[in-house]
């Protein structure tokens, strides 16, 4: 369990430093189980910070998302550091960005949180629908969530609400941090991301039927891209006009091309935080694609993303004995 007082204390200390601009963390949302990212510019702002199992959002995205307004004459760019509260996967995302030279380590202050898994917002909102008042969720030592609603206490087994990606998480502890809150989590059991095998064994046509159904539904809002901490290209290949790789019209062909390329561009980079699937407004199981690639990459090249910032990117290196059984 993360000690809230400790979190706030540490955040305050970091925000007070002269070389830190702000710290990104979580605070309570506007209703129900909602949580929103919070930005602390001053120690007072840090008072609102919380951490609970519903804090599923990957805050690493804010390290690459900031858009600065054009500078006025005589104004100087604020080059101070940004502080971020990171869970295991968030920290891995940052390691990965640093590895790709998208960020500099010295521009960041990382508050690491050993993560016991997060609650899938869709699941908890289904279990307790229509909650207007803000609700606290606490995890106890017996792998249960304690949820207080209108004076009534509900105990829910952890497994029922835990995010699917968290069930198969191998790295709950942040690999990179400046301060670590609480003790490292021990990994007890890891469930295989079983959906992949199920589909993998099916016939080609059945696989296509499955994905066709999902791709047809895509509305191309690009929330998957924007929520992903690793989709930080200045100009996405989906937005380029010359050449226009993917047309803007929404139909099966273009939707499939978009979803294939989104997943492919995360090969050897995806850190399995599950944000893309979480934000998708039309419930496309995007993590199945990401996990599939992750598994292939592990098997073929023995490569895991986001663990070592000195490692070279997957597609930027090779081994002479890479598998080539598919080559004619």
């Amino acid at each position: 369990m993360v000690d809230l007082k400790n979190l706030i204390e540490i955040t305050k200390k970091i925000v007070s430093r002269e070389d830190v601009r702000y710290v990104v963390g979580y605070k309570k949302g506007t209703y129900g189980f909602q949580i929103m990212p919070a930005f602390a510019y001053t120690p007072e702002d840090a008072e609102d910070f919380i951490y609970s199992p519903v804090c599923s959002k990957n805050l690493a995205v804010y390290t690459i998302l900031e858009e600065k307004l054009p500078l006025k004459r005589g104004e100087e760019e604020d080059k101070r550091k940004i502080g971020v509260v990171v869970k295991g996967c968030d920290s891995r995302a940052i390691v990965q960005i640093i590895q790709e030279k998208g960020l500099k380590r010295e521009d960041l202050v990382l508050i690491g949180i050993p993560c016991k898994g997060v609650i899938e917002p869709k699941k908890i909102e289904k279990m307790f629908p229509n909650q207007t008042d803000l609700i606290d969720v606490i995890e106890n030592d017996n792998s249960e969530y304690i949820i207080n609603i209108g004076g009534k206490t509900h105990k829910v087994p952890k497994n029922e609400l835990l995010s699917d990606v968290c069930k198969s998480c191998e790295f709950p502890n942040p690999p990179l941090y400046d301060v670590l809150l609480g003790e490292e989590v021990e990994i007890t059991e890891i469930e295989e991301f079983s959906k992949i095998d199920e589909l993998d064994e099916k016939h080609t046509e059945d696989k296509w039927e499955y994905w066709k159904r999902h791709f047809e539904r895509c509305i191309r809002c690009y929330a998957c891209r924007e929520a992903c901490p690793l989709c930080y290209c200045k100009e996405c290949m989906a937005d380029t006009l010359n050449p226009q790789w993917i047309r803007r019209s929404v139909n099966l062909s273009e939707n499939a091309a978009w979803n294939i390329m989104r997943a492919y561009h995360l090969a050897g980079r995806c850190v399995s935080c599950g944000e893309c699937e979480r934000v998708c407004p039309v419930n496309i199981p995007l993590m199945e694609l990401n996990k599939k690639i992750e598994r292939d990459v592990k098997k073929m090249f023995d490569y895991t993303s986001g663990l070592d910032e000195e490692e070279k990117p997957l597609f930027g290196m090779f081994k002479p004995d890479d598998p080539e059984d598919f080559i004619l």
Partner: peptide, 30 residues
């Protein structure tokens, strides 16, 4: 090293397309 890099990329791409339901015979490398 260009062909080594291509080998990695196409290996992943081929498997992804296969997973989505596009016949593996359609993308070949030699």
């Amino acid at each position: 090293r260009g062909n080594y890099l291509a080998r990695r990329r196409i290996a992943v791409m081929k498997r992804l397309l296969e997973y989505i339901g596009i016949e593996p015979e359609r993308v070949r490398m030699t």
